[in-house]
Computed example of a mutant assay.
Amino acid sequence: MSECLTEWIAGVDEAGRGPLAGSVVAAAVILPDVCPIVGLADSKTLSEKKRDQLAAEIKQHAVAWCIASASVAEIDQLNILQASLLAMRRAVEGLALQPQRVLVDGNRIPSGLTMAAEAIVKGDSKVKAISAASILAKTARDAELVLLDQTYPQYGFAAHKGYPTAAHLAALEQFGPIAAVHRLSFAPVKRAVAQQQRALF
C-alpha cells in the first residue's frame, strides 16, 4: 500500500486493551509523504528505549499527531472494545489537521468519523503511519502507568503496566483493587472485589 499520496492520511492505533488497570490510549498520526523516520514498526516488537526514541522523532517530524484516551470509568461503562474505538475517534478528532482518509489498525472502524476510513488487520506492521500511532499510544500509556506507580508502589505498575501478570494478580489479592485505577468490569478485578467483600463478613 503506497503512502505517497497527495491526500493527508492518518494512521490510528490503540494501546492498553488487555491490562486490568489504567485507561486505554489511542493515537492518530499523519506522516509527511517522504517520511524521514527510520525504524517504524509495531510498537510491541520494539524495545522500550527504541519506542521512546521513535516517539520523539514522530512528534518532531509528523505533519500532525494526537494522543487521546478513554478512562477506566468509560471502559467499565461501555466495554473495552467500545472504549478503544472511542479513544481512537477522539485521537482523530484532536488532530490539528483533519485527514481525508484514516487507516485504523484492526478490523473495526470507530463510529462517528467524518472522513473515509479503512480497517487494516495487523496494520501496525504494514503501514508506517499506523506504526507511528502504535508507538505514540504505547509510550503514552506506559508513562501513565509509571506515574500511577509513584502513587501506588505496592502494585508494581511501572513493571507490568497494568497487565495481569502473576505479580499484579498477587498484589490485587493482597491489597484489593483501586476503584479509580482498576477496571472493575474485568474478571480478575471482579474476583478481587468479591474476595474483599467476603473478608468483611
Rank of each mutant, 00 (worst) to 15 (best):
A116R: 14
L136R: 01
S125D: 00
A159N: 05
A167H: 01
H168A: 07
V104D: 07
A116N: 14
I130R: 05
V104F: 13
G162D: 04
R108N: 13
V127L: 02
A132S: 06
P110L: 11
T151W: 09
P153W: 00
T139Y: 05
A132F: 02
F175K: 13
E173M: 13
L148N: 10
A166G: 03
L169V: 10
G112M: 11
H168Y: 12
Q150L: 05
A140V: 07
S125A: 03
L172N: 14
H160N: 09
I178W: 08
A166F: 02
Q150Y: 01
L169S: 15
E118P: 03
I135H: 01
V104A: 08
G106N: 10
A179V: 10
S125F: 00
A143V: 02
H168T: 05
Q150E: 13
K122W: 00
G176C: 08
S134G: 03
T114H: 14
G156N: 03
V146P: 01
S111M: 08
K138Q: 06
A129T: 08
A119R: 02
Y152Q: 13
A133L: 06
G156D: 03
A179E: 10
T165N: 11
V104S: 05
D105A: 11
P177C: 12
E144S: 10
E144A: 12
L169D: 13
Q150N: 06
A179S: 11
A132D: 00
D149I: 02
L145C: 02
K126N: 00
V121C: 04
Y155M: 14
A158K: 08
G112H: 10
S111W: 06
S131G: 05
A180F: 04
L113A: 13
A158C: 01
F157K: 12
A116H: 14
A117N: 09
P153I: 02
V181I: 11
T165E: 08
A158D: 07
D142G: 00
I130N: 01
K138I: 07
E144R: 12
T114Y: 11
A159G: 00
S131V: 03
L148Y: 15
K161P: 00
G123D: 06
A137R: 07
A180N: 12
P164H: 02
A166Q: 15
G112R: 15
T139H: 07
A119C: 07
A116T: 15
A166L: 13
H168R: 04
D149P: 03
M115L: 11
P153C: 08
D124F: 01
L147P: 01
S134R: 10
M115V: 15
K122I: 06
A143I: 09
